[in-house]
Amino acid sequence: MIKITPEELKTITKYIHDICGIHLDASKKYLLETRLSAIAEENGCGNYQELYLKAKRDARKTIEKQIIDAISTNETLFFRDTGPFELLQHKILPELIDARTPRSALMKTPIRIWSAASSTGQEIYSISIVLKELLGDTSKYSIKLLGTDISESAVTQASTGKYNKFEIERGLARDKLTKYFTMTGGFWKIKDEIRAMVNFRKLNLMLPFSGLGKFDIVFCRNVAIYFTLEDRKKLFNKIADTLEPDGYLIIGSTESLTGICPRFVPKRHLRSIFYQLK
């Protein structure tokens, strides 16, 4: 494994912050070495300074993508932490449908949900399973589900909707597994009816959100924890702009918006919290 020098540590952590917003301090030296060493070697670089320069010069951004994939954490599960999904099913969706159902039976009820750091898709697919379970026949609704992530390979895996036994077994009840997935070639694949409900695209949360539109519900869980306080403030301010005035924001169960975005007020339902605009 190639060792990182203190100067390189500064250069690389600043570079990583610039390309994806993830803030790493000097204590993450070992993490950087374990995750970036192979990328350096693969690209014929003997040290991290070389890797940095090569990545900056690379017009196709191949190395940049490799670094983002290596640094961004993809650890996620179906129905990770049941709280938000129970909140969605028992509180938010019924309220939202009440508020959004048009007077005319000819018009469809719009439901727009965004999973801002969708990783390999488990969260947004869990949301679509909740929708399917709650609504049954979805033809009366105009459902738009969007999953975005900084990592291109995560977006690709999310789009294929294929998971191995380790990725799937925890969190997902057996009945839901057999109802919404099919076993093919040793992998569990999400069924087309669920897959078709969701769109995925690559998005850097640090950059302006262009062409995203407005959402009724935004999930932004366990991603801002990797950002600096300043970047968090900017992020949640931009999220507030994408949310409908009566929309809902769900953040990670150990996250807080106190001192981060005064535009949101926390509301408690049973054992979970959600946020709405003031």
Binding site: S253, T254, T258, V265, R268, I273
Partner: peptide, 17 residues
């Protein structure tokens, strides 16, 4: 750890609000 921290943070969040 997470669920216990989550409860504490929720209480603080509501109190702060």
């Amino acid at each position: 750890t997470e669920s216990s921290a989550a409860q504490t943070i929720q209480d603080l969040e509501i109190a702060a609000a």
